[in-house]
Simulated scan of single mutants.
Amino acid sequence: MLDSTRIPLLLSFVLPLAACGGGNGDAHADPLANVYGDGERLPQVLGQPSWLDPDDQDSARCSYPSDRPVRVTGVAVVAIDRYDETSQGATGNYYVQDTYAQANHEPVEGDPVPGFGMTVFNPSFSPPDLRLAEGDVVDVTGVMMEFAGPVTGRFPFCRTLPEIGGTMSFRFENAHVESTTVPLTALRGYESARPYIGMLVRLENVEIAGNPSESSGRYSAAINMGQGVEASDIVRISNELYDLKGQGPALQGSSFRAVTGVLTYFYGFRIAPRSPADFEF
């Protein structure tokens, strides 16, 4: 249901009167606007990473795409990063999924599948005092960018993190967005895993390999991905969204029926659970 107390009504209903004479007296009604808006959809925005170079480990010769303006409408907030694991302000990202494309199963020819998720990097809000929650459906207006890594060291092989920087505005609340069950085989490498970045994914039959590691507040544990996976492509469970070490289950030597979380990327892929409820035993 639209919440008119949080932001002015976003949809208007135009009911002009029928012209007099020759009609049946009924008022003419224009079709209602699309409740999800008429902006771009995330599968269209994401695009194919044609700039990857498997021979350029140091990312010295990359042809990264230019930033471009985008207006994405009808995306649902699935997670908000409010946990500062580093105690240095590592918060503020929003993770959204395209409710319209996912609900209507609209494949976009030539684009990755599913490609329904996106990271919104430290957004601003319209109005400025807007406060969002998980399940809110929003529009995002800003710039689509392929973040190539910090200046101290690019991501290898011209890999990038797709994200949008811009302004979020409220559309309606209480959207139900389910996680997508993804086989571990789909995450065995950057190109196959990239379409799931920013999405709420669910991994089944998860086994922890080795001991968890901790550095500067970042706590994570590697998932057993099977044989033949490069060390940099091993997916890890991380504490990006809540205090995994203090409030989560013991990870060392553990196995889970399933683990749900947002798929993130920073030199490697990570599953970021939102709470202890994202672990199934």
Rank of each mutant, 00 (worst) to 15 (best):
F157Q: 03
F157L: 11
C158K: 03
T160D: 08
T160C: 13
T160E: 03
T160M: 10
T160F: 01
L161R: 15
L161V: 15
I164A: 09
G166Q: 09
G166I: 09
T167W: 10
T167R: 15
F170W: 13
F172D: 02
F172Y: 15
E173S: 14
E173W: 00
N174P: 00
H176E: 12
V177H: 00
V177A: 04
E178Y: 07
E178A: 15
E178F: 11
E178K: 14
S179V: 08
S179I: 09
T181D: 10
P183I: 12
P183V: 10
T185D: 15
A186R: 13
L187D: 01
R188I: 08
G189C: 06
Y190F: 14
S192L: 10
A193P: 05
A193K: 04
A193E: 01
P195E: 11
I197R: 10
G198H: 06
G198S: 09
M199W: 04
M199Q: 15
M199P: 03
L200T: 11
L200I: 10
V201M: 02
R202C: 08
L203R: 08
E204T: 15
E204G: 05
V206N: 04
V206F: 07
E207D: 13
I208M: 11
A209F: 06
A209E: 15
G210I: 13
N211M: 14
P212W: 10
S216M: 10
S216N: 14
S216T: 13
R218Q: 07
Y219G: 00
Y219P: 01
Y219R: 04
S220Y: 06
A221V: 06
A222L: 13
A222M: 10
N224F: 13
N224E: 09
G226N: 08
Q227S: 14
Q227L: 11
G228W: 01
E230Y: 04
E230K: 13
E230R: 14
A231T: 14
S232I: 13
D233W: 02
V235I: 05
R236Y: 00
I237E: 04
